[in-house]
Amino acid sequence: MFDKYILVDGSLRSTADGFSFDVMLGYYRGLGLSMIEDLVVSVDGQAVPRDAILFDEGKGPIALCDMEHAYDRRWPFGSKATIMVQCPQPLAAGDHHLSLKEVLRISYLPFPLVAEDSKTLTLAPTLAA
């Protein structure tokens, strides 16, 4: 439904221990974090291990394995969240193909809703200190 808006253009950034990018919810209503079954990330065709992914809807980073018990946290529709990927090798500056699959548990659906987006995002070069 809202798949083409999931990955936020211009949001790819380097971090101290990997990279991050902003995302939107691929569903027309907000969801509690406990209703997000999975977030599957790949960069340049390589799958990112699930335990290397952190999610932050504005209340601080949370590991995917801890989201199923995050009953007090909610991702509102229309708000950006950040996905942080921890990786030993930093991404090089330039274009990178990112893919994200959101697997969402919706109370009135007898199956998980899967929303997906793939885009080429550009990582700006970092300035030397």
Rank of each mutant, 00 (worst) to 15 (best):
L98Q: 03
F2S: 12
V23N: 01
P90G: 07
V23P: 02
G10Q: 08
D3R: 04
A129M: 14
Y71L: 05
M35H: 11
A128Y: 13
S99D: 07
Q86T: 11
G26K: 05
Y5M: 05
F21M: 02
A93I: 15
V43H: 11
V114C: 05
G30M: 10
L127T: 11
H96V: 09
P110H: 14
D95K: 14
H69F: 15
I106T: 13
M84P: 14
D9M: 04
Y71M: 02
L54Q: 08
H69A: 04
T15H: 00
L121D: 02
L54S: 06
T82F: 07
E68G: 14
I106D: 06
I53F: 04
Y108N: 10
L31H: 00
H97K: 14
P76H: 15
L91M: 07
V48S: 01
D95L: 08
Y5T: 08
A63N: 01
I53M: 06
I83N: 00
S11H: 10
S20G: 10
A93Q: 12
G10W: 10
A92K: 14
Y71A: 09
Y71C: 08
M1S: 13
A52D: 03
F111Q: 12
L64V: 01
A47H: 08
L109F: 07
D72C: 15
R50P: 11
F19S: 10
G94R: 12
S11R: 06
H96A: 12
D3T: 09
F2W: 15
M84C: 06
F55V: 04
A47R: 07
V103K: 06
P125K: 11
Y108W: 15
F19H: 14
D56Y: 00
M35P: 04
M24V: 04
V48I: 11
I62H: 00
D66C: 03
R50C: 10
E102S: 01
L39C: 03
P110G: 12
D117R: 05
L31F: 01
R73H: 10
D56L: 03
L98G: 01
L98N: 02
W75F: 13
Y27I: 02
S14A: 13
Q86H: 09
Q46T: 10
G18T: 09
I6S: 01
L64K: 02
F77Y: 12
G78A: 04
E37T: 11
L25C: 04
L104W: 00
K59I: 01
V103I: 05
G10M: 14
L91E: 05
P61T: 06
F111C: 09
R29Q: 15
V41P: 02
L64H: 00
T126K: 11
E57G: 13
H96M: 11
F111M: 15
T122F: 13
M24I: 06
A124K: 14
L113Q: 11
M84D: 06
F55Y: 09
A92Q: 12
Q46G: 09
L25R: 07
H96R: 05
P61K: 10
E102C: 05
L64P: 02
L39S: 00
A81E: 07
M24E: 07
T15Y: 01
M1G: 11
S42R: 09
